[in-house]
């Protein structure tokens, strides 16, 4: 198991370097000029040229690559052009926000997704199954920005239960964090709940038709014991694989939700960096996101191997 884990970590290093190179190359190819964005449309040509020099944007591509990797190998991701702060510092400040939101969303996804999926499978072809799958379909179909706005009107304006947005650090005020993060987390989670419920239902139906389940029932095991002890362990194998992907989506795909709810996470940071052509911030942010996703994938693979001995043998 340890050898397997170390092998997966070793494979991650070249992937990370490749991501950094691709992100650097893509940003150089994308048109747009951070100096023009900063200076606005009314700057004179001389003022723009001067600002480019000031920001170091006039250097050759080779020089920029050498500076970038020279700094990267020293753990320095450079300075943000727009924020004027070290990229690493900003990313470290923002990542707990996105990670805590993603974890909250993941918990909602697991709890509601598994519950709905299992109940739907147990009540197969009955009205509960129909309602559960209709809910899952709505979850998959409804855009999260629309859901976010509807929730703001309902829970903030009309009911006054939750704040319209913002972020409260968990360790400063856990209740404030919970109240502020609930609507963004729900907006992010709803689609994933729908996906997980559908997957859980279909996998559970398949497992419930297996001989060993019939044997367990024939031996007089109670229905909860059949579901929890015998069926769930096999249902979880594909579910765990999907959960890794879901967490990746929750971590990297929250730009719109973070914008609507004014959450200063990595998604909003990267979105603004792209709009402002803040090259160092985009590169640093992408490397960070890639690193987190790689770690997640390794964790999922290790968990998968732990759940399914066949993977370890292979």
């Amino acid at each position: 198991m340890l050898a397997y884990t170390l092998r997966r970590i070793a494979q991650a290093v070249p992937i990370l370097l490749l991501v950094s190179l691709i992100s650097f190359g893509i940003m150089q190819l994308v048109p747009g000029d951070p100096a023009a964005v900063l200076a606005g449309p009314n700057a004179t040509p001389d003022e723009l040229v001067h600002l480019r020099q000031t920001l170091g944007l006039d250097k050759s591509l080779l020089t920029q690559i050498m500076i970038f990797y020279g700094n990267l190998f020293q753990g320095d991701l450079g300075y943000s052009i727009i924020l004027g702060e070290p990229v690493l510092k900003v990313v470290i400040e923002r990542s707990p926000i996105s990670i805590s939101l993603a974890i909250y969303s993941l918990i909602l996804t697991i709890v509601f997704g598994l519950f709905i999926g299992v109940v739907a499978a147990m009540k197969h072809n009955r009205w509960i199954d129909q309602v559960a799958m209709a809910f899952a379909l709505i979850g998959v179909s409804v855009p999260n920005f629309w859901l976010g706005l509807v929730m703001i009107v309902l829970f903030s304006v009309h009911l006054g239960w939750l704040p319209t947005g913002g972020y409260v650090p968990f360790f400063e005020d856990p209740i404030g964090w919970f109240l502020a993060a609930t609507m963004p987390a729900l907006s992010l989670a709803l689609m994933q709940i729908g996906l997980l419920a559908r997957l859980t239902r279909s996998t559970m139906l398949e497992v419930l038709g297996q001989d060993y389940i019939r044997t367990a029932r024939a031996k007089g095991a109670s229905e909860p014991r059949v579901i929890i002890k015998h069926a769930m362990s096999n249902v979880l194998i594909p579910v765990v694989t999907v959960l890794g992907m879901i967490l990746s989506v929750l971590l990297s795909g929250s730009v719109i939700v973070e914008t609507i709810f004014a959450v200063p996470g990595i998604g909003a940071l990267l979105g603004n960096a792209i709009l402002g052509r803040d090259y160092p911030m985009i590169q640093g942010g992408l490397i960070f996101v890639a690193a987190v996703l790689l770690i997640l994938n390794i964790a999922v693979d290790v968990l998968y191997a732990w759940l399914d001995p066949r993977v370890r043998v292979q």
Partner: peptide
């Protein structure tokens, strides 16, 4: 920063 107009107005209505 409340970039989304609907959310910005909602925050005014709630007194936030």
């Amino acid at each position: 920063t409340l970039a989304e107009p609907g959310a910005r107005l909602a925050a005014l209505e709630t007194g936030e």
